[in-house]
C-alpha cells in the first residue's frame, strides 16, 4: 500500500469574479521513501495541491476530494486532528526562507516547537535534538548560532534551518515547495544534494515542487507535470526523459537549457496560461498547443497509460500519434 493516496482532489476559490478553479481532479499516489517531482509554470496549481493536503489553503478555498496518509483521511478533518499530523508526520519546507521564518522568534524556539508540541518533550530534550538536526543539515558552529534570530543568518543557512525544523519529528512525508527558488545557484545545488542525502538517511517520502525540470531530473523517482490545475503527464523519471507525449511537457523540456544536447536555442512556450476562473471547455492547454484540433477545444482529455516499461500517464488526445519531442525539434 502506498503512503499517500490522493484521489480526485479539487480546490476552488470563491472570489468577487466568481469561482477560480485552482485544482481540478488531481489524483496521484506516493510510496514510502519515494520522491515525486511536481513540475509546472507558476499558477499551474502545484503549490495549491500540497497546501490543500496540509490544510493550509486560504480562507476562501473550497477543497473537495480525498487524500489519505496511510489510510487516514486528510481532507475535511477538524484542525485539531490535522494539527497532530502536520509538523509530525508530514512536514513542509517553503519557498522563501526569509519570510517563512518568524523574524521575532529565535531559531532555537522555532526549532524546538514541533517536538515540544507533538512529542511533549522538554525544552532541554528538544534543544539537544535541535542541535543534532542543525548538525545534520550542516550548519557550522551550531552551539553559538542557535540563539540567533533568522535575519542574522544568510538565505542558504535560513533554508537549512527550515529543513532542520521540518525534520525535527522525523516525518514520513516531506513536502518541499520550491525550496531553492529564492537561493543563489551554488547554494541551490548544495541544498538539493543535502535534501537527497537526508531523504536516504531518514527514509522518508518526498514531494518536491519546482518549476525547473532540471531539478527534477537529478532528484526525483517520479514526475508529475501540471498545467492549469490538472495533471497532464505523470511518469517515472527515466521514462519521461526518454519519451514525453504531452506537448506541454515537450515545451517545458525545450524551454530548459540542457548540457547534454547540441541544442543551442531555447524555445519558449508561446501564449499565456489560461484564466482559472474561465477555463476553456476542452483541454486547458489547447489555446497554446501547436497540435490542437477541434476535439481538443471541445472535450477534456483523460489520463491514459501509454504502456511504457512502467506506468506512464498522459492526458492528450494526440499522445499516441507521434513522438512529440521529435516533432517539436524538427
Amino acid at each position: 500500500m502506498s503512503l499517500l493516496e490522493v484521489n480526485n482532489l479539487n480546490v476552488r476559490f470563491k472570489t468577487n469574479d466568481g469561482l477560480v478553479h485552482a485544482i481540478n481532479h488531481v489524483s496521484f499516489s506516493l510510496d514510502k521513501a519515494e520522491t515525486l517531482g511536481v513540475v509546472g509554470e507558476s499558477g499551474s496549481g502545484k503549490s495549491q495541491t500540497v497546501l490543500a493536503l496540509m490544510g493550509l489553503s486560504a480562507n476562501n478555498a473550497l477543497v473537495s476530494g480525498s487524500a489519505k496518509l496511510d489510510g487516514k483521511e486528510l481532507i475535511g478533518i477538524p484542525t485539531k486532528e490535522l494539527n497532530q499530523i502536520r509538523g509530525n508526520e508530514i512536514s513542509m519546507i517553503f519557498q522563501d526562507p526569509m519570510t517563512s521564518l518568524n523574524p521575532y522568534v529565535t531559531i532555537e524556539t522555532q526549532l524546538c516547537e514541533p517536538m515540544m508540541v507533538h512529542q511533549h518533550s522538554t525544552k532541554a530534550q528538544a534543544r539537544r535534538h535541535a542541535i543534532d538536526m542543525l548538525d545534520a543539515v550542516r550548519i557550522p558552529d551550531i552551539a553559538n548560532r542557535i540563539k540567533l534570530y533568522p535575519h542574522e543568518l544568510s538565505g542558504g543557512m535560513q533554508q537549512r534551518v527550515m529543513v532542520a525544523m521540518a525534520l525535527m519529528c522525523k516525518p514520513r512525508l516531506l513536502i518541499a515547495d520550491e525550496p531553492t527558488t529564492a537561493l543563489d545557484v551554488t547554494v541551490q545545488a548544495q541544498l538539493l544534494k543535502l535534501l537527497q542525502e537526508l531523504q536516504d538517511e531518514f527514509k522518508m517520502a518526498t514531494i518536491l515542487i519546482t518549476h525547473d525540470i532540471a531539478v527534477v531530473a537529478g532528484a526525483c523517482d517520479r514526475v508529475m507535470v501540471m498545467y492549469a490545475g490538472t495533471t497532464v503527464e505523470s511518469a517515472q523519471i527515466h521514462d519521461l526523459f526518454a519519451n514525453h507525449y504531452h506537448p506541454y511537457t515537450s515545451g517545458l523540456m525545450t524551454a530548459t537549457p540542457r548540457v547534454d544536447s547540441a541544442q543551442t536555442k531555447l524555445q519558449e512556450i508561446t501564449g499565456e496560461p489560461p484564466d482559472l476562473s474561465h477555463l476553456p471547455a476542452g483541454c486547458a492547454f489547447s489555446p497554446r498547443c501547436p497540435r490542437a484540433t477541434d476535439i481538443c477545444s471541445q472535450q477534456h482529455p483523460v489520463l491514459e497509460d501509454m504502456h511504457d516499461q512502467n506506468l506512464h500517464y498522459v492526458a492528450c488526445f494526440h499522445a499516441r500519434e507521434t513522438d512529440n519531442k521529435e516533432t517539436l525539434n524538427s
Partner: peptide, 17 residues
C-alpha cells in the same frame, strides 16, 4: 496572512499558541 504564520501552521501549532 504572512508566510511565517503559514510555516507555524504547517508545524501543527494550535490556534492559541
Amino acid at each position: 496572512g504572512s508566510p511565517f504564520i503559514r510555516t507555524a501552521k504547517a508545524k501543527g501549532l494550535s490556534m492559541p499558541r
